[in-house]
Design a protein around this nucleic acid. Sequence first.
RNA 1: GCCGCGUUAGCUCAGCUGGUAGAGCAGCGCUCUUGUAAAGCGAAGGUCGUGGGUUCAAAUCCCUCACGCGGCACCA
Length: 658
Amino acid sequence: MSDAAEAIREVRITLPDGAVRAYPAGVTGAGIAESLSKSLSKAAIAATVNGRLTDLSQPITENSAVAIHTIRDEEIALGLIRHDAAHIMARAVQELWPDVKVTIGPVIENGWYYDFDRAEPFTTEDLALIEKKMREIIALRDPVTTEVWDRDRAVRHYEALNEPYKVELVGMIPEGQPIRMYWHGHWQDLCRGPHLAHTGQVPADAFKLMSVAGAYWRGDSDRPMLQRIYGTAFRTKDDLKAHLFRLEEAAKRDHRKLGREMKLFHMQEEAPGMVFWHPEGWTLYRALEDYMRRRLRHAGYKEIRTPQVVDRKLWEASGHWEAYQEHMFLVEVEEEAAKEKRVNALKPMNCPCHVQVYNQGLKSYRDLPLRLAEFGACHRYEPSGSMHGLMRVRGFTQDDAHIFCTEDQIESECAAFIALLSSVYKDLGFEKFDIKLSTRPEVRIGSDETWDKVEGALENAILQVGAPYQVDPGEGAFYGPKLDFKLTDAIGREWQCGTFQVDAQLPERLGAEYVGEDGDKHRPYMLHRAILGSFERFTGVLIEHYAGRFPLWLAPRQVVVAPIVSQANDYADQVVMALRAKGVRAEADLRNEKINYKVREHSLAKVPVILAVGAREVEERTVSIRRLGEQRTEERPVDLAMADLIAEATPPDLARTA
RNA sequence: GCCGCGUUAGCUCAGCUGGUAGAGCAGCGCUCUUGUAAAGCGAAGGUCGUGGGUUCAAAUCCCUCACGCGGCACCA
């Protein structure tokens, strides 16, 4: 085709408002923006062409629907800003330290990271240097340009630059996919894009480098450890400030900090990953445990208790020894003292023990479903770097239960479980949760027919309850599909707590059976299920969800009665005694301190209710009620106030049946 | 487990390039009898995580280990 012929070819561009305009073929998003208005041309950051987000510099060669984006298109702008900030950071790093090797730098929630290979560790001072250099690059307003190269040229290019990670990345790009090379000014990176039009479109005052961390190359612990720098970026300085403020607020509800401040628990180096519960914390834990015990009992579960220390023979039989031996705490008796040599393990899970209980005595189909529950204390030798306050510990207690049932009973058991879990989460203050259904993996036991039935049972159960869910194909265990339940906390974070897992394997390995209607022996299914997961972790989630300001029924300290003058001490004691008689966790603060002091101290300790009593209250048989976080007080007759507090302190399940 | 950083009084933290430790709050004692987020005064409190090394001298520099923190990997 001649140049002249090319020039007269036209493409029809449909704009978001429906207008159709003709442009010469090969027109770019930038060109279209320029034709529409000067201001749009300046503000444009990218374009969507036929539903695909692209650079403004991409030529458009066929009739297309085109939308030009500016920084006002929040989702698109944030993605591009963070993406380009990652490139600008990598460029800044290489300009400061030319020997640093670059790898990858994707956009993540709230920001981006970029992994570097550098002999020297990055310091926090380095981050400030990099930020400064990034602002310089942004000020250059270097245009972003792109070319598609063939594979060999790209490989040679990166070999010449001594960028081995990029060579590897080029090799990973599937055949037939274009290899896009990008430039920010003179600096070059391998990237599929899209990008902003120039570096100046990253707001210089709305990004921040957050932290440095180690990360394995391609997430593989057998490969080199790189240095990862995390950054965050927004469209405006105020958005960045708001984000940093949210991080500070989240840090304030850190359960480790609140745990110390509210005297809930502590941990120490003689027992890493193990919790020392203090009186206040144990009160909270017990409120939760007592509640769960009642809920399980009412749902038809039988509570049992099984041993902590069990011979390795059982773990060999269950298959855990082979797979998880190095994560088990071993318990041995001194050879001289022991009559026989045995190797025991602290139980890492309850299920093999539960099968032992099931296996005692012959079971009939009439016994099924049999729901065995245990608040089972388990120990796992977790990797040292994985521990995190109460969220990941080595000694924990599950709200564990195993349901032994027939295949036909799976669906109704699953539906009943979801209903129970949903009610429990609601009582504990979590309105929203999501379900993930993990289905058959490549490598599995059992026939496809069985998998069809069991997966169908789980899906039907979910539909029955009407809960939102998504399917995660291939993510199930080799012995059965499972459901994971993720709840959302007060600040939008998700926590996977509940689980429901179908197991056809363990009953087989440990020889569980029942006599059916037909008089023959059959293998029961075993359903592993938990609602809270572990009490330790769930307590941590509760602390963070409520930021330590628990609803009255969960609060470790519910009511403090604080006399204003010592003449009110006897009256305060009477009120405390009356509340305690009704099960309310009340205490009197008879210290010789001003009421201001007492109010401040108990407020900081997050006691939900302070009852102040002075001469007037004694005289009139009233109390002055002050709620945590409120300035105002309310004076009420003591009997009425106590009746309301007693009602409010009643756990929700008991309140429903009262 | 891996990378980086950290560990000083009960808590929060100072302590620069080496000269054997400071503050606020809490706790303790005394005074104050108090009206809704800190009354006043006083005395006390630390083998500077562990073990080793360098040095005339180490909280400070080097090494080891432990634990913690931020990630990565792992999470039956």
